[in-house]
Amino acid sequence: MNISAIITAVAVVGIVGLLLGIFLGIASIVFKVEVDEREAAVLEALPGNNCGGCGFAGCSGLAAAIAKGEAPVNACPVGGEAVGNKIAAIMGVEAGEAVRNVAFVKCAGDCEKTTRNYEYSGVQDCSMMQYVPDGGAKSCNYGCVGYGNCVKACPFGAIHIKNGIAVVDREKCKACGKCIAACPKGLIELIPYPAKTAVACSSKDKGPVAMKACQSSCIGCGLCVKACPQGAVTVENFLAHIDQSKCTGCRACKEKCPKKAILELS
């Protein structure tokens, strides 16, 4: 056994390692990423669901934006007021009032109110419905097809399919907006939690067609528009819509609606 061979081997590996170490040391200074310590604290305070409801890529994205002052301290829709106050304390500012929103499915065409044109037994996925005849087996082409893409998308288990349509559990909903993106029919919107009434239909068909498709469809008759003392209801494309910022919750529209397409909430 040659002792010098061992020494050369140790020396070579040692020197290569040392050189690489120096190289990495220099690189770590050159590529240093400034981490704001408040960012870590904010991240700690956020719920950590990474739902993306705030519009940023996960909680770490929002934490970075808050630390830089690019996002308000109460931007997290999930944590609500409690988390907003905690983050405000970290950032040393006052938290503003945040209005709590909930998701609302603009369709009430469940299995009793709609009929089925044919038996569908293909892939159980809402986004497949654009490829099958008539946009799905349900008699209404605009409504909820009930295969639960929103259910799968919801990180909080707040949506369930009941009797063929998606229904939001208002207490569990954190208004993260995942279901809005998941629904290929665009049926889900965010409305304020205290909202009293909302139009549970998305049919843009003319009255007779809509009436045939679903028992609780909006036929665009306009009675609700006339009934509303605040001018909060508008009808466009044979479909009523309530402007929640003007609505006072008098429920006049709901009383007048001949098709019971306007639902009373809370």
Partner: peptide, 22 residues
């Protein structure tokens, strides 16, 4: 083998730093 592994490990560290920054 051992020297190559050293080099590769160092390069991966370098790529990691680079990506984290840019």
């Amino acid at each position: 083998t051992i020297v190559f592994i050293l080099v590769i490990a160092a390069l991966v560290q370098f790529v990691e730093m680079f990506l984290k920054k840019y």
